[in-house]
Amino acid sequence: MNENININGYVTVKQEDEVLVDKAKNKFTENMIKGLIGCYSKKNIYFDSRSDIWAEDMSIRLGYGGLTETFKTMTQLNDVYDTTQNEINFYGIETGDWYSKVKFTVTYNTENLQNNNITDVNELGLRMRPITQHWANPDGSVTTSADLTLCARICEGDLSMTPFTVNQSKPLTIEWEYELVIV
C-alpha cells in the first residue's frame, strides 16, 4: 500500500440534462508529463517579471478529426473547430482519503456553437501552458512564459468516446477532472 500514485483525467460533456460523454478517460501528452515532473526540479520557475504558465489562456477545444489515435508528442487536435469556450471555471483541490482532485468546467454558448457551425465532434483536447523549459536546462531558471500546447485528449480513435452531434440550440458544458489516487 501507498507505493504508487495514479493520476487520471476524466471528461464529461453535457447539453443541459443530456449526457453526451460520460467520464471518458483521457490520454496525456508528453508535454503534460514533462510539465508536471519539471516542477520537481531545483531552480526558479520565474524571475523578475510576469510569466504565463499552466492555466493561463487554457481552453478545452472541440474537434472532428478524432479517428486519429492520440500519440504522446501530439501538440494539437487533429481537426479543430476554430473557437474556444465562452466561460470557464476553475475548482480548487478536493482532498479525501488518499485522493486529491482538480477540476475545470467550460461552457460553449449557443451563439458560439451556431456561428462556428459546431456539429459533429469526435475529439476533445485540453490546452494549457505546462512548464517544459526545465528539460532543456534542468538547473537553470525559467524566465519566459510557457507555450500553449495540447496536454490531454479524448477521441473516437482511442475508443475513449463515442462521436456526438451538437444541438446548437443548447449550451454545451464540458467538465475535465483530474484525480490523484495513492494506491
Binding site: I5, D52, W54, A55, V102
Partner: peptide
C-alpha cells in the same frame, strides 16, 4: 503528494 497536480491551477508567476 498533492503537489503533483497543483500546478495545473496556476496561471501566472509574478
Amino acid at each position: 503528494t498533492e503537489a503533483l497536480i497543483l500546478p495545473m491551477l496556476i496561471i501566472r508567476s509574478t
